[in-house]
Design a protein around this nucleic acid. Structure first.
Length: 423
DNA sequence: TCTGGGGTCCTAGGACCC
DNA sequence: TCTGGGGTCCTAGGACCC
């Protein structure tokens, strides 16, 4: 049986989520901002046309936004996450093999014996997702993930083809590759794109025709895989779903810069709390913890720039917020340097493995068992009464470091008191 | 004044071992 | 003064992704 891969990717996902719950936004351009209201991370088609670019700092486009009455929202990840899982539920019905690649896209494998039907299949997928969730998706179909990405990219630009493109037939494939700038290929970032262009490799087709040895030398094994994928040779397997996570990261940039160790302690406490919740939700334990704090990367003067990082291996892998917090507070002073204005910080948990009970603890097992009961009680209370109703630690939950989230829409689907009202 | 967050994979280089 | 070879494991940092 011949198989093909389809990439399904939501169009302007965050902006469309906002519109689904606030139909007045359909008549206006919409942008969604990142945490701390820092950058534009999603734009409706109209906002895109105004020249607002992806990842552009908000303050740089504020005037443009006001002039054109663009609707602005802070990120509402609870809402987007919930909409995302609804889309994935629909996709799962179309294929047993589903890889959720990001919040707004997924790969599925499909039976490609009857090639004439692939475009129709794509349209059915798109229509069904639209009907069940209100979200429009694009569908790109090809022999490998990288080619499916190319197909999806072109499908997005073609409302006429109703956002579906099948590239399994080779003449279409050549034309598509020729129209795709090399920097738009999945896996080719800014550095590699610039390098390739300096050698006259400008399109995806040029890249496909490059010499293997040369690619290996210039872009290592990952670059070579990309080139093979463009030739239709599958190198990037469909990930098992859900693929196990290798790290948990919680980091934020601060509302305002902070300078004292105490303020950093409070921020790190908050991040550890979030990280512990993530660990327990995924039923994982961590064997090592990293803490970092940095000044703004936009500081011009070298003397104003600093980035401190420290890692500690934990004697026993843990998911206890208390243990993680003790470790983090222990190593934080080692990376702190007075005299800097810190603009962001975070924690990284690594050495993850699944929770298999506590019987392997050689010592402190009673204490750990008590902490586990405590954690699950706290998680339960917070789930019912709201985040941080009960929390661990000595530190204040607010401060200059807290992020700004001034323009967030209600969490319509996950919070009872923010549910939509129909008058 | 104001510039996101959460991930993955790969490589180089150091520590350490026999 | 001369100064192996092969291997593993760990970490830091780069490049990339959405």
């Amino acid at each position: 049986m011949k198989r093909a891969i389809a990439l399904i990717d939501a169009n302007n996902f965050y902006a469309t989520c906002e519109r689904v719950f606030d139909p007045a936004l359909w008549n206006r351009p919409v942008v969604v901002l990142s945490n701390n209201d820092g950058c534009v991370v999603a734009r409706s088609a109209e906002a895109r046309k105004l020249g607002i670019r992806m990842a552009e700092p908000y303050f740089k486009v504020k005037d443009l936004i006001e002039t054109h009455k663009v609707a602005v929202r802070s990120s509402n990840y609870e809402l987007y996450g919930d909409m995302s899982s609804r889309i994935m539920d629909v996709l799962e019905e179309f294929s047993p093999e589903l890889e959720v690649y990001s919040i707004d896209e997924a790969f599925i494998t499909i039976d490609a014996d009857d090639r004439s039907n692939l475009t129709e299949f794509g349209k059915t997928v798109r229509d069904t997702v639209k009907r069940h969730t209100g979200i429009t998706v694009s569908v790109g179909i090809a022999e490998t993930k990288t080619l499916a990405k190319v197909a999806n990219h072109l499908a997005k630009k073609s409302e006429k083809a109703r956002f579906v493109l099948d590239l399994t037939e080779s003449p279409h494939q050549e034309i598509a590759l020729e129209r795709t700038p090399v920097g738009e290929v999945w896996g080719i970032g800014r550095q590699h794109a610039a390098m390739l262009k300096s050698y006259g490799v400008n399109t995806a087709l040029d890249l496909r025709n490059c010499d293997d040895q040369w690619i290996r030398r210039k872009m290592h094994i990952t670059g070579l895989r990309t080139v093979h994928e463009l030739r239709g040779i599958q190198c990037v397997e469909l990930g098992a779903s859900p693929n196990p996570k290798r790290s948990v990261i919680v980091s934020r940039s601060f509302g305002e810069p902070v300078s004292t160790l105490d303020e950093l302690r409070a921020a790190i406490s908050y991040y550890i709390t979030r990280a512990g919740e993530k660990l327990r939700k995924r039923r994982l334990v961590a064997a090592a913890l990293t803490v970092f704090a940095k000044t703004s990367r936009f500081n011009v003067d070298d003397h104003d720039r600093y980035s401190g990082i420290a890692t500690e291996s934990l004697v026993m892998a843990t998911d206890s917020t208390l243990e993680l917090m003790q470790s983090a507070q222990r190593i934080l002073p080692g990376l702190y340097r007075p005299g800097y204005r810190y603009k962001s910080a975070g924690v990284i948990l690594t050495g993850l493995s699944s929770m298999t009970g506590t019987s392997l603890r050689l010592w402190d097992s009673d204490k750990y068992e008590r902490e586990r009961l405590l954690m699950s009680a706290i998680d339960g209370l917070n789930a019912r009464h709201g985040q941080d109703t009960v929390r661990c630690g000595l530190h204040d939950n607010e401060g200059k470091w807290a992020s700004r989230l001034g323009l967030r829409s209600p969490r319509y689907t996950t919070k009872w008191d923010e549910i939509m009202r129909v008058r």
